[in-house]
Design a protein around this nucleic acid. Structure first.
Lengths: 143, 143
DNA sequence: CAGCATCCATGACGATACTG
DNA sequence: CAGTATCGTCATGGATGCTG
């Protein structure tokens, strides 16, 4: 029971989050960077790209490796990443069908940029956590 | 009417998004990287860091430059970034008070990593949009 | 000027059940 | 195995009004 229109109720739009695009915002937010950050900021995309960076995987393989993702979110995120051209989906005509997901060159490019962020996080989030503790000590419950 | 407990209803937690941290997730999601991606993925943080990268600014200055942010989100995001140690808040005792926000060295580090992502987006999001169009043409409404 | 408090709409996400 | 469909929840974030 589907009339065929494409975007399902919660289909993630990548190009334009459909804000007030008419306004002349000083710093436009429907720019490519915002779209990328939306994708990268969601819960599973980066995890999936990281895993597929190690090698191609099947649906349930990903599900097991991630462990904590619902199959709704997994398939939804995979479809979005495929649509973005960041990964490729191959259907092998076995019985039952097996589907393999593989990162594309474009996805690998993004992953490289992503890894710099990840490296920064792993070396410097300690400083961030320390700053948070200092902030909370000073303002949160000061005597 | 506030009993003094710190986290307000919608206070952004950076360290742990309060998932099922008890589970032994194969790929833990309450890692520093996830926390960073949550911050970076929200709507205003990156924009604010970029603006403050150009120079210190006041509250309403930021609000004007961004144009589209509510002051709730602006102050909330600024407070979170300050708590993370990514920017500093200085109160000048003028009349009325003026408050200046300035990026910290830590914030500048993050901004540098961020800029690589932004550069990637600006050069390669064209390819992503093309992939989306191809995907939609093939699956969305194919004859 | 620089915020905080409150209400409310949307939508992201998870749980569950069902299919080829 | 690899999904789709549906429903409920809860957080995100915008609008509005008030304060020092």
């Amino acid at each position: 029971m589907q009339d065929g229109t494409f975007p399902s109720p919660d289909y993630p739009e990548v190009t334009a989050p459909r804000r007030d695009a008419g306004r002349g915002d000083a710093y436009a937010r429907d720019c490519p960077t915002r779209a990328l950050l939306d994708r990268v900021g969601d819960k599973w995309s980066v995890l999936i790209l990281l895993l597929l960076g190690e090698g191609a995987m099947r649906f349930n393989g990903l599900k097991r490796r991630i462990g904590g993702v619902s199959q709704k979110m997994l398939s939804q995120t995979l479809r979005a990443l495929e649509r973005d051209g960041l990964l490729a989906r191959e259907v092998l005509p076995t019985t039952p069908v097996s589907v393999t997901y593989r990162i594309t060159p474009l996805g690998r490019e993004l992953l490289a940029a992503l890894r710099l962020m990840i490296d920064w996080a792993e070396t410097r989030m300690g400083a961030v956590v320390a700053a948070q503790a200092a902030y909370d000590a000073a303002c949160g419950r000061a005597p």
